[in-house]
């Protein structure tokens, strides 16, 4: 069970959080103008890397805020947590 540092509340046990998959997947600005392939990529395709992964978490049993987690999928080390809207940090640890 991880210890996750909520950017708003600080370090808490994983049981307070839930994960919502890969982050930094923007909803197309104007969905009507994208073709089926692009829309399909937005809906269905995720990177699933062995290494650094950027994912969205919520602090369900806390502040209920969404935020980003940068986690290594092999070691499960959480390198960084950062708020929504913050820039994606560099992939420097692979």
């Amino acid at each position: 069970m991880f210890v996750i540092k909520c950017p708003y509340c600080g370090e808490r046990d994983q049981t307070e959080f839930s994960c919502h998959g890969e982050s930094h997947i923007a909803r197309p600005e104007n969905p009507n103008e994208v073709n089926d392939k692009e829309w399909g990529e937005y809906l269905f395709f995720r990177s699933n890397p062995k290494g650094m992964h950027y994912e969205r978490w919520t602090h369900d049993h806390g502040c209920r805020q969404w935020f980003n987690v940068k986690r290594h999928t092999v070691t499960d080390k959480i390198i960084q947590t950062y708020t929504m809207g913050e820039e994606k940090p560099e992939d420097n640890n692979v």
Binding site: P28, N30, P31, N32, V34, D36, W39, G40, L43
Partner: peptide
């Protein structure tokens, strides 16, 4: 409406 959640998927084949 220009857009709402799910709209674009209605025209997927």
């Amino acid at each position: 409406k220009e857009d709402f959640l799910g709209k674009r998927s209605f025209i997927r084949s």
